[in-house]
């Protein structure tokens, strides 16, 4: 079947199998390899992207369901794809050492952007609850929490297109 999806601001038209999962569309059809599959069971959140502005687990969404929609992955955050700066959430994850092996990171960052879009000034507790669907084995979440709280100091950290100043 044919789908039309805007991925990281670029409209695409692709022929896909009805059973294709959105995460495989992003990785294999669109060639965006940052979004990872961590668990297959909608548990770990490594595959989190923004679909029509809200965070979703792309391993549990069919490409077909996203037909006509807009997707943002970590590659499309901030301005680095066009030579610009990192998004405030990306920058804060680096500053606070909110990542180690990096495998959960694209999903964790997208979930954080989604969280901040809905709640720009979360408390510690709200950050923890807001990321309950994203697993990390390396950091114990300590620095992820700090990173999200740091990013929240940027007023537009909930907007995918936001960039830190150079």
């Amino acid at each position: 079947m044919q789908v039309q999806i805007t991925v990281n601001k670029k409209p695409r038209t692709d022929e896909v199998e009805p059973r294709q999962l959105l995460v495989h569309y992003l990785r294999d059809t669109a060639g965006l390899k940052a979004t990872n599959v961590g668990c297959d069971t909608t548990s770990c959140g490594a595959c989190t992207v923004l679909l029509d502005g809200v965070s979703v687990k792309s391993c549990t969404v069919l490409t077909a369901q996203a037909d006509g929609g807009t997707v943002v992955t970590v590659e499309g955050l901030g301005g680095t794809a066009d030579g610009g700066q990192m998004h405030p959430v990306q920058s804060a994850f680096r500053e606070e050492h909110g990542l180690q092996c990096g495998f959960c990171t694209p999903g964790m960052v997208m979930a954080s952007v989604g969280l901040l879009s809905e709640n720009p000034n979360p408390t510690e507790h709200e950050v923890r609850e807001g990321l309950e669907g994203n697993y990390c084995r390396c950091t114990g979440y300590h620095n992820i929490l700090r990173a999200v709280l740091l990013a929240a100091q940027s007023p537009d950290a909930g907007k995918p297109e936001a960039q830190v100043s150079a």
């Binding site: 965070s55 979703v56 979930a111 994203n134």
Partner: peptide, 9 residues
């Protein structure tokens, strides 16, 4: 229910 991503869908 679940987590934020699950509640969105």
């Amino acid at each position: 229910i679940g987590d934020p991503q699950i509640r969105h869908r």
